[in-house]
Design a protein around this nucleic acid. Structure first.
Lengths: 254, 254
DNA sequence: CGTCGTATTGAATGGGTTCAAGTAGCGTGG
DNA sequence: CCACGCTACTTGAACCCATTCAATACGACG
């Protein structure tokens, strides 16, 4: 069913079959959140964390002036608010870009699991460290790359991450964001995003419409964006068309 | 001796005295690193992690074009490369801004401790989550604030963090960075940093020379930078002149 | 068929960069 | 003691990448 999740679990480093089973049996319920609605809002104090089964979301901050900064895009398999398990108050919101299906993990359950299984504890920690690694790369992008490079880099990142969880076919994937979203994630205006995307299309590097991104010339785009996937900490090189049995485990609530 | 560390430990959330003792007894040796030298270099695979006892450091990335992005400033009490305990390869370097004294924690030791003491495991995880929270705030700053706001925000952050570990007296602290460093941390050119700092000086908001930062008008600067300290996750409100007994624990190797 | 959200285009403006030159402080060595 | 070199800071002027403002186009949807 939710192969992205089992693919993701494989990334999560060194979990034994039993530990994977424990993690998949933990969520107590399924939650659905409609498009453009918060999964978690800034300032919230939570008693549970959510794993994305289906759909796209984004972390974001709203600044006093009304400007928005998107901090990350979250895709199926991401444990999108696991940090609330440790930090009391959310310093940012998480909003659905599409309708999302989530698996809900009560913090009490996570507490029991992490105290009993140090390997799971480490795996969840790792998940947040990979997030942090992505933050760092974005910071470098926003701080030191120009608009063309930033957009190229972002598109390569999205494609690579979706490939890793089996949600891309070749160099094509769903990426349900508006040009305004891209702007808010890279510190650019909508207008300029539009112009740069056109440049890339004219050069034949990409097509991007109907929420579908296709990268026609991976090498050129990756080079333009100085993209090197190592910061994503993917243990397996992203392969296309990988068939995944999910280690024979499946999610209890589904 | 190293009061910043014991102050920091108090932030680290709900550690029992014994657990603090364990953490302080764990480092096997002291390490000193001279100014402008890497504590850890990008690409390194480490067998140990370092806690900063004295001195200032910064995380950074070098981009292919030769540009540099500073990702964070690290101060005494920061567990500056704990992430290498979980992630195999460093995706960025950490460089000393001043001579640094470090307490070295072998990963094997950390492994034993975290498996035995879930609370310490959580505390170390939390440390990295606070780092991530700071990354997010910086991203918002670099992406959506102008030069004046960015610099104001950074100066407020530094002051607040140093206050929290007892390294500021009132609104004055040591901040041993060049204007180029500030530029590289905020995505600005040296020239522009210089001009904005002069603006702030002319308005009487700050003085900043000889590596000493003084904020004369905290309210104005904080407002200009939209600074709200909550993202720093300081459990105690930073108080000046706080005397700290360190819970009667002290570091074994010192 | 009007409306809303998104994409597109042109033109003017501006925040910040880049280039270039000059200044100041400090340690070193002859 | 001064020349020298190094690093950090400062200033002016030209330029440009990206923003802002404003108008238009286009498709989906009730």
């Amino acid at each position: 069913m939710f192969t992205p999740v089992s693919n993701k679990l494989r990334q999560l480093g060194g979990l034994a079959p039993e530990e994977k089973r424990v993690l998949l049996a933990a969520p107590t319920r399924l939650r659905e959140v409609p498009r453009h609605q918060d999964i978690v809002s800034e300032g919230a104090r939570l008693g549970e964390s959510c794993l994305i089964l289906q759909g796209f979301a984004c972390r974001y901050k709203l600044l006093p002036g009304g400007k928005r900064q998107i901090l990350a895009f979250q895709i199926p398999g991401d444990f999108c608010d696991i940090q609330s398990f440790i930090l009391d108050v959310m310093d940012h919101g998480i909003c659905c870009l599409t309708r999302c299906k989530l698996a809900v993990y009560p913090h009490a359950t996570l507490r029991q699991i992490t105290e009993r299984y140090p390997a799971i504890h480490r795996a969840l920690w790792k998940e947040t460290l990979v997030d942090a690694s992505v933050y760092r790369e974005w910071m470098a992008s926003i701080g030191r790359r120009n608009a063309y490079q930033r957009i190229a880099h972002l598109l390569c990142e999205i494609m690579t991450r979706l490939q890793a969880v089996g949600l891309a076919t070749g160099h094509s994937c769903e990426f349900p964001v508006t040009q305004a979203d891209i702007g808010d994630s890279l510190g650019l205006s909508v207008v300029h995003v539009n112009r740069v995307l056109q440049q890339m299309r004219r050069k034949g590097l990409i097509t991007f419409h109907d929420n579908t991104l296709v990268i026609h010339q991976w090498e050129q785009l990756a080079q333009a964006g100085e993209f090197d996937a190592s910061y994503l900490q993917l243990t397996d090189p992203p392969k296309h068309e990988r068939k995944q049995a999910g280690d024979g485990v499946s999610m209890a609530i589904v």
